[in-house]
Protein backbone atom coordinates (compact mmCIF):
# COMPACT_ATOMS: atom_id res chain seq x y z
CA UNK A 1 0.00 0.00 0.00
CA UNK A 2 1.33 3.40 -0.96
CA UNK A 3 1.96 5.89 1.76
CA UNK A 4 -0.24 8.93 1.51
CA UNK A 5 1.39 11.89 -0.11
CA UNK A 6 1.24 14.02 3.01
CA UNK A 7 2.77 11.13 4.94
CA UNK A 8 5.70 11.02 2.56
CA UNK A 9 6.05 14.76 2.88
CA UNK A 10 6.13 14.43 6.65
CA UNK A 11 8.78 11.72 6.37
CA UNK A 12 10.85 13.91 4.07
CA UNK A 13 10.49 16.80 6.47
CA UNK A 14 11.49 14.62 9.37
CA UNK A 15 14.58 13.40 7.52
CA UNK A 16 15.47 16.95 6.60
CA UNK A 17 15.10 18.21 10.15
CA UNK A 18 16.19 15.44 12.46
CA UNK A 19 16.18 17.81 15.41
CA UNK A 20 12.48 18.48 14.93
CA UNK A 21 11.74 14.79 14.53
CA UNK A 22 13.65 14.01 17.68
CA UNK A 23 11.83 16.72 19.57
CA UNK A 24 8.47 15.41 18.36
CA UNK A 25 9.41 11.88 19.32
CA UNK A 26 10.77 13.10 22.60
CA UNK A 27 7.47 14.67 23.51
CA UNK A 28 5.60 11.51 22.68
CA UNK A 29 3.77 11.51 25.99
CA UNK A 30 1.79 14.52 24.93
CA UNK A 31 0.16 12.54 22.15
CA UNK A 32 -0.19 9.07 23.59
CA UNK A 33 -0.14 6.44 20.89
CA UNK A 34 -0.82 3.53 23.25
CA UNK A 35 -3.53 5.03 25.35
CA UNK A 36 -5.56 2.29 27.00
CA UNK A 37 -8.74 2.00 28.96
CA UNK A 38 -9.70 5.35 27.47
CA UNK A 39 -8.52 7.21 30.53
CA UNK A 40 -5.51 9.40 30.04
CA UNK A 41 -3.52 10.05 33.15
CA UNK A 42 -4.42 13.15 35.01
CA UNK A 43 -1.09 14.84 34.89
CA UNK A 44 -0.51 17.25 37.72
CA UNK A 45 -0.73 20.87 36.76
CA UNK A 46 2.64 22.09 37.90
CA UNK A 47 5.58 20.99 35.87
CA UNK A 48 8.62 23.10 36.38
CA UNK A 49 10.99 20.33 35.38
CA UNK A 50 9.28 19.58 32.08
CA UNK A 51 10.10 23.06 30.85
CA UNK A 52 13.77 22.29 31.32
CA UNK A 53 13.63 19.49 28.78
CA UNK A 54 16.50 19.49 26.31
CA UNK A 55 16.66 17.88 22.86
CA UNK A 56 17.76 14.25 23.04
CA UNK A 57 20.95 14.79 21.09
CA UNK A 58 22.15 17.47 23.49
CA UNK A 59 21.64 15.40 26.63
CA UNK A 60 24.65 14.21 28.57
CA UNK A 61 24.89 10.43 28.83
CA UNK A 62 23.19 10.12 32.18
CA UNK A 63 20.74 12.99 31.79
CA UNK A 64 17.26 11.56 32.17
CA UNK A 65 14.71 12.20 29.44
CA UNK A 66 11.55 13.98 30.50
CA UNK A 67 8.69 11.71 29.58
CA UNK A 68 6.19 12.29 32.34
CA UNK A 69 4.97 15.08 34.55
CA UNK A 70 4.41 12.76 37.46
CA UNK A 71 6.94 12.80 40.30
CA UNK A 72 9.74 10.35 39.68
CA UNK A 73 13.34 9.58 40.60
CA UNK A 74 15.80 8.65 37.88
CA UNK A 75 19.45 7.71 37.65
CA UNK A 76 21.81 10.50 36.72
CA UNK A 77 25.00 8.46 36.71
CA UNK A 78 26.84 5.63 38.41
CA UNK A 79 29.71 6.16 40.78
CA UNK A 80 31.78 3.71 42.72
CA UNK A 81 30.41 0.29 43.50
CA UNK A 82 27.37 0.56 45.79
CA UNK A 83 26.86 4.19 44.78
CA UNK A 84 24.43 5.71 42.34
CA UNK A 85 23.47 9.27 41.47
CA UNK A 86 19.75 9.95 41.42
CA UNK A 87 17.77 12.98 40.32
CA UNK A 88 14.19 13.96 41.05
CA UNK A 89 11.75 15.04 38.34
CA UNK A 90 8.20 16.29 38.36
CA UNK A 91 8.42 17.95 41.76
CA UNK A 92 10.47 20.26 43.91
CA UNK A 93 12.37 18.48 46.65
CA UNK A 94 15.38 19.39 48.72
CA UNK A 95 16.54 15.96 49.76
CA UNK A 96 16.45 12.28 48.96
CA UNK A 97 15.80 9.91 51.81
CA UNK A 98 17.14 6.38 51.52
CA UNK A 99 15.82 3.56 53.71
CA UNK A 100 18.01 0.48 53.97
CA UNK A 101 16.76 -3.08 54.49
CA UNK A 102 19.35 -3.63 57.23
CA UNK A 103 22.77 -2.63 58.42
CA UNK A 104 23.92 -0.24 61.15
CA UNK A 105 21.09 1.60 62.93
CA UNK A 106 22.43 5.03 62.01
CA UNK A 107 22.41 4.06 58.31
CA UNK A 108 18.89 2.66 58.20
CA UNK A 109 17.56 6.06 57.19
CA UNK A 110 19.88 8.52 55.51
CA UNK A 111 19.00 11.86 53.89
CA UNK A 112 21.02 13.26 51.03
CA UNK A 113 20.69 16.94 50.01
CA UNK A 114 19.59 17.32 46.39
CA UNK A 115 21.72 19.56 44.21
CA UNK A 116 21.30 20.55 40.60
CA UNK A 117 22.97 17.31 39.57
CA UNK A 118 20.92 15.19 41.95
CA UNK A 119 22.33 13.27 44.87
CA UNK A 120 24.71 10.34 45.12
CA UNK A 121 23.30 7.67 47.37
CA UNK A 122 25.03 4.59 48.65
CA UNK A 123 24.08 1.34 50.33
CA UNK A 124 23.79 1.24 54.10
CA UNK A 125 27.05 -0.68 54.44
CA UNK A 126 29.60 -2.08 51.98
CA UNK A 127 28.24 -5.56 52.47
CA UNK A 128 24.56 -4.58 52.66
CA UNK A 129 22.94 -4.89 49.27
CA UNK A 130 19.44 -5.78 48.10
CA UNK A 131 16.66 -3.23 47.69
CA UNK A 132 16.91 0.20 49.27
CA UNK A 133 13.80 2.38 49.27
CA UNK A 134 14.32 5.93 47.99
CA UNK A 135 11.90 8.77 48.59
CA UNK A 136 11.68 12.47 47.72
CA UNK A 137 8.99 14.65 49.27
CA UNK A 138 7.89 18.12 48.35
CA UNK A 139 5.26 20.14 50.19
CA UNK A 140 3.29 23.32 49.64
CA UNK A 141 0.22 24.43 51.62
CA UNK A 142 -1.97 23.10 48.80
CA UNK A 143 -0.13 19.96 47.82
CA UNK A 144 2.13 17.14 48.98
CA UNK A 145 4.12 15.26 46.37
CA UNK A 146 6.02 12.08 47.06
CA UNK A 147 8.21 10.27 44.57
CA UNK A 148 9.48 6.83 45.48
CA UNK A 149 11.55 4.15 43.86
CA UNK A 150 13.64 1.16 44.83
CA UNK A 151 17.30 0.74 44.10
CA UNK A 152 18.93 -2.68 44.06
CA UNK A 153 22.52 -2.70 45.31
CA UNK A 154 24.11 -5.85 44.05
CA UNK A 155 25.50 -7.31 47.28
CA UNK A 156 23.35 -9.73 49.24
CA UNK A 157 21.30 -8.05 51.92
CA UNK A 158 18.18 -8.33 54.01
CA UNK A 159 14.97 -8.98 52.11
CA UNK A 160 12.82 -5.82 51.85
CA UNK A 161 9.90 -7.20 53.88
CA UNK A 162 10.16 -4.64 56.69
CA UNK A 163 11.19 -1.93 54.26
CA UNK A 164 7.88 -2.16 52.42
CA UNK A 165 5.77 -2.57 55.55
CA UNK A 166 6.82 0.67 57.23
CA UNK A 167 4.49 3.63 56.85
CA UNK A 168 6.28 6.81 55.87
CA UNK A 169 3.84 9.13 54.14
CA UNK A 170 0.14 9.85 53.95
CA UNK A 171 -0.43 8.30 50.54
CA UNK A 172 1.85 5.50 49.35
CA UNK A 173 2.14 2.99 46.51
CA UNK A 174 3.90 -0.15 47.64
CA UNK A 175 4.97 -2.98 45.29
CA UNK A 176 3.61 -6.36 46.35
CA UNK A 177 6.31 -7.61 45.98
CA UNK A 178 9.38 -6.15 44.35
CA UNK A 179 10.91 -8.46 41.74
CA UNK A 180 13.56 -10.83 43.04
CA UNK A 181 17.19 -10.36 42.02
CA UNK A 182 16.96 -12.29 38.79
CA UNK A 183 13.43 -11.18 37.99
CA UNK A 184 12.05 -7.92 36.70
CA UNK A 185 8.84 -6.26 35.70
CA UNK A 186 8.17 -7.30 32.13
CA UNK A 187 5.59 -6.41 29.55
CA UNK A 188 2.41 -8.50 29.59
CA UNK A 189 3.08 -9.56 33.18
CA UNK A 190 0.68 -8.86 36.04
CA UNK A 191 2.10 -7.24 39.17
CA UNK A 192 0.34 -6.02 42.29
CA UNK A 193 0.75 -2.68 44.00
CA UNK A 194 -0.80 -1.76 47.32
CA UNK A 195 -2.13 1.76 47.76
CA UNK A 196 -2.14 2.97 51.37
CA UNK A 197 -3.72 6.04 52.88
CA UNK A 198 -2.52 6.79 56.41
CA UNK A 199 -1.26 3.25 56.54
CA UNK A 200 -4.59 1.67 55.60
CA UNK A 201 -5.37 -0.03 52.31
CA UNK A 202 -7.25 2.31 49.99
CA UNK A 203 -9.97 0.53 47.95
CA UNK A 204 -11.39 1.81 44.65
CA UNK A 205 -8.54 4.27 44.20
CA UNK A 206 -7.49 5.18 40.67
CA UNK A 207 -3.86 4.42 39.90
CA UNK A 208 -2.33 5.86 36.76
CA UNK A 209 0.45 4.23 34.80
CA UNK A 210 2.67 6.16 32.44
CA UNK A 211 5.53 4.58 30.55
CA UNK A 212 8.52 6.05 28.84
CA UNK A 213 7.24 4.55 25.59
CA UNK A 214 4.03 6.55 25.68
CA UNK A 215 1.46 4.21 27.18
CA UNK A 216 -1.05 5.80 29.53
CA UNK A 217 -3.56 3.74 31.44
CA UNK A 218 -5.50 3.66 34.69
CA UNK A 219 -6.60 0.90 37.00
CA UNK A 220 -8.67 0.85 40.17
CA UNK A 221 -7.57 -0.79 43.38
CA UNK A 222 -9.65 -3.70 44.65
CA UNK A 223 -11.25 -4.01 48.09
CA UNK A 224 -7.85 -4.80 49.59
CA UNK A 225 -6.37 -1.65 48.12
CA UNK A 226 -4.36 -3.59 45.56
CA UNK A 227 -3.98 -2.37 42.00
CA UNK A 228 -3.17 -5.18 39.58
CA UNK A 229 -1.18 -3.75 36.73
CA UNK A 230 -0.59 -5.56 33.46
CA UNK A 231 2.50 -4.01 31.99
CA UNK A 232 1.77 -2.79 28.47
CA UNK A 233 3.22 -4.57 25.49
CA UNK A 234 4.83 -1.48 24.09
CA UNK A 235 8.53 -2.34 24.04
CA UNK A 236 10.31 -1.89 20.77
CA UNK A 237 12.22 -4.88 19.40
CA UNK A 238 15.93 -4.64 20.13
CA UNK A 239 17.81 -5.35 16.91
CA UNK A 240 21.24 -5.40 18.55
CA UNK A 241 22.57 -8.82 19.54
CA UNK A 242 23.84 -9.38 23.07
CA UNK A 243 27.39 -8.09 23.21
CA UNK A 244 29.58 -5.80 25.21
CA UNK A 245 27.66 -6.15 28.44
CA UNK A 246 24.41 -5.16 26.80
CA UNK A 247 21.59 -5.65 29.27
CA UNK A 248 18.07 -6.32 28.10
CA UNK A 249 16.52 -2.99 27.16
CA UNK A 250 14.46 -1.55 29.99
CA UNK A 251 11.93 1.23 29.87
CA UNK A 252 10.81 3.41 32.70
CA UNK A 253 7.35 3.57 34.15
CA UNK A 254 5.68 5.53 36.87
CA UNK A 255 2.57 4.62 38.84
CA UNK A 256 0.78 7.45 40.58
CA UNK A 257 -2.23 7.97 42.79
CA UNK A 258 -3.86 11.18 43.88
CA UNK A 259 -6.18 11.99 46.77
CA UNK A 260 -7.60 15.18 48.16
CA UNK A 261 -8.14 15.50 51.90
CA UNK A 262 -8.77 18.54 54.04
CA UNK A 263 -8.31 20.89 51.10
CA UNK A 264 -4.85 19.50 50.40
CA UNK A 265 -3.92 17.38 47.42
CA UNK A 266 -1.68 14.36 47.93
CA UNK A 267 0.13 12.88 44.95
CA UNK A 268 2.29 9.84 45.36
CA UNK A 269 4.23 7.96 42.72
CA UNK A 270 6.37 4.87 42.43
CA UNK A 271 8.67 4.57 39.46
CA UNK A 272 10.86 1.74 38.26
CA UNK A 273 11.58 0.02 34.98
CA UNK A 274 10.19 -2.87 33.00
CA UNK A 275 11.62 -5.01 30.25
CA UNK A 276 10.44 -6.76 27.12
CA UNK A 277 8.58 -10.03 27.08
CA UNK A 278 11.36 -12.65 26.80
CA UNK A 279 9.24 -14.54 24.28
CA UNK A 280 10.06 -11.84 21.77
CA UNK A 281 13.60 -13.19 21.53
CA UNK A 282 12.91 -16.82 22.24
CA UNK A 283 11.47 -19.71 20.31
CA UNK A 284 9.84 -22.55 22.19
CA UNK A 285 9.65 -24.79 19.12
CA UNK A 286 13.44 -24.75 18.73
CA UNK A 287 13.84 -25.47 22.42
CA UNK A 288 11.42 -28.38 22.41
CA UNK A 289 13.04 -29.69 19.22
CA UNK A 290 16.50 -29.91 20.77
CA UNK A 291 15.09 -31.48 23.94
CA UNK A 292 13.41 -34.18 21.85
CA UNK A 293 16.67 -34.66 19.95
CA UNK A 294 18.41 -35.34 23.26
CA UNK A 295 15.70 -37.80 24.24
CA UNK A 296 16.03 -39.67 20.95
CA UNK A 297 19.80 -39.83 21.42
CA UNK A 298 19.28 -41.51 24.79
CA UNK A 299 16.80 -44.12 23.51
CA UNK A 300 19.46 -46.74 22.61
CA UNK A 301 20.40 -46.86 26.29
CA UNK A 302 16.99 -48.27 27.09
CA UNK A 303 16.91 -50.77 24.25
CA UNK A 304 20.33 -52.30 24.75
CA UNK A 305 19.84 -52.84 28.46
CA UNK A 306 16.81 -55.01 27.89
CA UNK A 307 18.88 -57.31 25.67
CA UNK A 308 21.79 -57.44 28.10
CA UNK A 309 19.55 -58.16 31.05
CA UNK A 310 18.83 -61.67 29.85
CA UNK A 311 22.19 -63.02 30.96
CA UNK A 312 22.38 -61.23 34.28
CA UNK A 313 21.60 -62.52 37.68
CA UNK A 314 20.04 -60.22 40.16
CA UNK A 315 21.94 -59.75 43.35
CA UNK A 316 20.92 -60.90 46.79
Amino acid sequence: MKAPFCGRLALLAALSFPGHWAAANHAGHDAPAHERHGAPAQAPATNAVAKEAVPAGARPRHEAKIWTRLPNIQTAGRGERNTVKLKVFGMDATELTVYAPGGPAERMRVSYPLGAEGASISSAAPGMGNYHWVIARGETPEEVRVASTAWYFSNPGDAPTRLLREIRHELEIIPQPLPREHASYRESEKWRFLVRWQGQALPRQAVHLETELGTRMSVLTDEQGVATVVFPRDQRPNPAPAKEHARPPRSKFVLAAEKEEGGRRYITAFNYQYGPDPDRQRDLAWGAGFAVLGMVAALPLLRRRQIAAAGEKPNA
Binding site: Q281, D283, A291
Partner: peptide, 21 residues
Amino acid sequence: ALRVDDGVSFALGAAANALIG
Protein backbone atom coordinates in the same frame (compact mmCIF):
# COMPACT_ATOMS: atom_id res chain seq x y z
CA ALA B 1 12.59 -21.71 24.70
CA LEU B 2 15.81 -20.90 22.86
CA ARG B 3 17.10 -17.41 22.27
CA VAL B 4 17.14 -16.87 18.54
CA ASP B 5 18.67 -13.39 18.47
CA ASP B 6 22.21 -14.48 19.26
CA GLY B 7 24.15 -17.38 17.78
CA VAL B 8 26.19 -18.21 20.88
CA SER B 9 23.15 -18.11 23.17
CA PHE B 10 21.25 -20.27 20.71
CA ALA B 11 24.06 -22.84 20.61
CA LEU B 12 24.37 -22.96 24.40
CA GLY B 13 20.62 -23.21 24.82
CA ALA B 14 20.44 -25.98 22.23
CA ALA B 15 23.16 -27.88 24.11
CA ALA B 16 21.26 -27.43 27.39
CA ASN B 17 18.00 -28.65 25.91
CA ALA B 18 19.62 -31.64 24.25
CA LEU B 19 21.34 -32.38 27.54
CA ILE B 20 18.16 -32.33 29.58
CA GLY B 21 16.35 -34.37 26.94
